[in-house]
Simulated assay, not measured.
Amino acid sequence: MKVLVPVKRVVDYNIKVRVKSDGSGVDITNVKMSMNPFDEIAVEEAVRLKEAGVATEVIAVSAGVTQAQETLRTALAIGADRAILIESDEDLQPLAVAKLLGALVDKEQPQLVILGKQAIDDDSNQTGQMLAALAKLPQATFASKVTVADGRAQVTREVDGGLETLSLSLPAVVTTDLRLNEPRYVTLPNIMKAKKKPLETVKPADLGVDVSPRLKTLKVVEPPKRGAGVKVPDVATLVDKLKNEAKVL
């Protein structure tokens, strides 16, 4: 069974982002970049499926700038077998990425596509669902447990009321949640081995996909600073402040 794992290069989750002075976006100059945490969970799950003898090949794929090769090398170090970079300097929006991944699904014919439920930079939570729709594949989102056997995937997913278990016929698309697994620590020997694994580079035009932006960012602003808290002597004062100052009552 072949597993395709899309991964995204994002600002590291430990970094406090800064908005550009002109309000056009987030400043990523000289900022540490890393793999989207949800995608790292997806890679780990795919590698575990291979280690269990369920999957035979794990393919990591990323769409973006040349530097995304570093993110793919991390996926290879975790245990992916090969990688594909769809190289583009365009601002790739979820629909464009879904179309690119759809073209790769047609080319590679994976039995399972597993990716993070969302990226921590734009928090769109759209790519997996759009890919499933474009490729006409069954989907399960927010997976906290995945079991694959007999041509089907059993996916336990988190919903507002608790847990829901779905049974999907393969091929299928699964998006991962935080509780699915704990990604392994990447060791130096595996980082060295990853340098020798194949990494293919293609262009969106090679896949016949138009990645022109459909949405325009008008302005990016930082959230307002929170005011300092105050102590109140009694409940009556608290209620008065909530009613007349905070205007929440």
Rank of each mutant, 00 (worst) to 15 (best):
T176G: 02
P198S: 06
K196H: 10
A172E: 03
I191S: 14
L180Y: 01
T187I: 04
N190G: 03
L188S: 08
P183N: 00
P204D: 10
E200A: 15
L207G: 03
V209A: 03
D177A: 11
T175G: 05
P198G: 12
L207I: 06
L199I: 09
L199T: 06
V186T: 13
D177Q: 14
V186D: 04
N181P: 06
K193E: 11
R184V: 05
T176L: 03
A172C: 12
K196E: 13
P204H: 09
V209G: 01
N181S: 03
P189D: 03
L207Y: 04
Y185L: 08
L178Q: 06
T175D: 08
L207M: 11
G208H: 02
P198C: 05
A194Y: 06
L199A: 04
L199C: 12
T187S: 12
L180T: 01
A172R: 00
T187R: 08
L178I: 09
P189S: 07
Y185D: 02
V202D: 13
K193V: 13
A194N: 07
V173C: 01
R179I: 03
V209L: 01
Y185H: 09
V174D: 00
P204I: 14
I191M: 08
E200I: 15
R184Y: 09
L180W: 00
T187K: 05
L178Y: 13
L207K: 03
A205E: 10
P183W: 01
E182Q: 08
L207D: 05
D177R: 07
L199N: 13
P171H: 04
T201E: 12
Y185P: 15
M192K: 14
V202M: 10
V173I: 01
I191H: 13
D177K: 04
K195A: 05
P183G: 03
G208T: 00
D206E: 05
P204K: 05
K196P: 09
A205D: 11
R179H: 11
A205T: 15
V173L: 00
P189N: 07
D206I: 09
D177H: 11
T176V: 06
K197P: 14
T201N: 04
P183Y: 01
Y185V: 07
D206N: 07
V202K: 15
K195H: 15
T187V: 04
D206H: 06
K193M: 12
L199K: 07
D206S: 01
K197N: 10
P189K: 02
E182P: 13
E182M: 07
T201S: 13
L188W: 14
K203I: 05
L180V: 02
A172N: 09
E200M: 08
R184N: 09
A194V: 06
Y185K: 07
K195I: 11
T201G: 15
L207R: 07
A205C: 10
V202T: 11
P183M: 02
L178P: 06
V209I: 08
R179T: 06
N181L: 00
